[in-house]
């Protein structure tokens, strides 16, 4: 896993961030799908994290869960999932 660059605070140690959940399939409708279904793609995971030990911003993170490489980090809500 590599470091996460918080869009506000800059690169910080991974220990400062907390993962919340993997997002459901794009376009998933209904509370059930949003609550229970998870996308299991070993090459790309789209997730919500919070920078709890910093600015507390909620982040939308695109990551490769097989290598730990972080592709993109943006503030959640700026791009709706």
């Amino acid at each position: 896993m590599t470091r996460i660059a918080c869009p506000f605070c800059g690169p910080r140690e991974l220990r400062e961030f907390e993962f919340h959940k993997t997002l459901p399939t794009p376009g998933a409708q209904g509370a059930f799908a949003r609550t229970y279904e998870r996308v299991a793609d070993p090459a790309l995971s789209v997730e919500h994290w919070q920078h709890v030990a910093g600015c507390r911003a909620w982040l939308l993170v695109h990551r490769n869960p097989s290598t730990g490489v972080v592709f993109a980090v943006e503030l959640a809500g700026e791009v709706m999932p």
Binding site: H20, H48, Q50, R56, A57, W58, G77, M80, P81
Partner: peptide, 14 residues
Amino acid sequence: LAHFEYYRATDWAG
């Protein structure tokens, strides 16, 4: 706090 912040930042963004 995190729960409130989460929904403010996601479903209630904007």
